[in-house]
């Protein structure tokens, strides 16, 4: 029962990641790409937690937490760069 649920959930997150990737490639603007990348990070966090449940290991939490952290920092840095690069220009 749980195995099946995890499998379905993994498929959902995988599909979500593909959709995010499509938006990342498609754009059209830089802001869309940043948003797509940020969503990919969040979905990857979910994927790692799911993997942890699937393999019954708790070691994946640290990885999930780190991915979530990096995603946020990356998004902020990219947005700040785009926002500030203009002021300097």
């Amino acid at each position: 029962m749980l195995k099946l649920a995890v499998a379905i959930a993994l498929a959902c997150i995988g599909a979500a990641l593909l959709l995010n990737f499509w938006r990342l490639v498609r754009g059209p603007g830089p802001a869309d790409r940043i948003l797509a990348l940020d969503t990919m990070y969040v979905n990857t966090t979910a994927l790692l937690v799911l993997l942890g449940i699937h393999l019954n290991r708790t070691v994946y939490f640290e990885a999930a937490l780190l991915i979530a952290l990096m995603g946020f920092v990356g998004t902020v840095a990219l947005c700040k760069y785009l926002l500030r690069g203009d002021i300097i220009e």
Partner: peptide, 25 residues
């Protein structure tokens, strides 16, 4: 657990569908 998993995964997918198909940023 299975119920929460499925609800969570469904919402994550819906969010990404929204990201992919809605017309503007």
């Amino acid at each position: 657990t299975a119920l929460f998993l499925l609800i969570g995964a469904a919402f994550a997918l819906i969010g990404s569908v929204g990201l992919a198909r809605l017309p503007d940023l």
